[in-house]
């Protein structure tokens, strides 16, 4: 509520340009986008669509729990339904601020849990056009941020923030984000590669209010260079459902509790 109050005050101020700096916008955006609620659950359907129109589908249940403030540690638990031959596969991520993730994967065919090394955060998430970083977030302090302008995107007033990575360890040169001034969700993002060409575009295509939290329930990432795109739909999204800490363990990777994954 405090947040909204600030926003309200900011909007009333005549010198609004100076009222909020770019880093704050991005921090708020991160909180609204990736840290909403204490925990979160959704059935995720990802459609990976090639330039030629061929589709691959990924279907999974995603569980997330926050450990600390926005920008802090989080744990993810994913259970796969599709493709059919990976049914029962589970994937767990411990996310830490300013440190590499820990990841585990359960492979049912050989009944084995394997740790997976966190690598390049800009690598693809399950073969989609989203990177791991797009899914779990990027540390705010890894980039320098600047508000380029404020403009309307559709009916929504947005800040347009340019984020430039401090190190050249990612495959893009800079990113432009259109952050909704009202709910701070990113409505659109443009990634520019090192040749200065627009390479990827993220769009939030449907936003629903779930338990009071504005949530992007449909999103798309399009790779303009390869023509490949990924459409993601969240269904059965819910917040603050009381996920126990113990879920995020190797034991439950092998035998995920039905009540959470359904």
């Amino acid at each position: 509520m405090y947040r909204y109050l600030i926003v309200l005050l900011v909007m009333l101020l005549p010198f609004e340009v100076f009222a909020i700096n770019a880093e704050d916008v991005m921090k708020k955006s991160q909180a609204a986008f990736l840290y909403q609620g204490k925990d979160f659950k959704a059935r995720v359907i990802m459609k990976l669509i090639s330039k030629g129109g061929q589709e691959r589908t990924r279907e999974l249940t995603m569980l997330r729990k926050n450990f600390g403030e926005a920008g802090g540690a989080q744990k993810f638990f994913m259970y796969f339904f599709q493709p059919a031959d990976v049914k029962d596969m589970t994937f767990m991520v411990y996310k830490y601020p300013a440190k590499d993730d820990d990841r585990w994967l359960f492979i049912p065919a050989i009944n084995m849990v394997r740790r997976i090394a966190a690598q390049d955060k800009t690598s693809s998430f399950v073969g989609s056009d989203f990177t791991y970083e797009d899914v779990s977030g990027r540390d705010i302090q890894d980039d320098t941020h600047a508000i380029l302008k404020e403009e309307k995107l559709g009916a929504r007033d947005c800040y347009v923030v340019k984020s430039t990575p401090k190190k050249g360890d990612v495959d893009y040169a800079h990113k432009l984000s259109w952050v909704d001034k009202g709910n701070f969700l990113p409505l659109k993002e443009e990634y520019y590669d090192k040749k200065g060409e627009l390479s990827r575009v993220f769009t939030a295509d449907e936003i629903k209010i779930i338990k009071g939290f504005p949530t992007i329930t449909k999103r798309m990432m399009k790779n303009l260079l390869s023509g490949h795109r990924t459409e993601v739909t969240y269904s059965k999204a819910d917040y603050n459902i009381g996920i126990e800490d113990s879920l995020f363990s190797e034991r439950y990777l092998k035998q995920p509790p039905k009540k959470w994954i359904e």
């Binding site: 031959d85 994937f91 492979i107 065919a109 693809s124 998430f125 399950v126």
Partner: peptide, 10 residues
Amino acid sequence: GQYLFLFSMS
């Protein structure tokens, strides 16, 4: 199928 999925994850 699972190996290839695992491969495609990263």
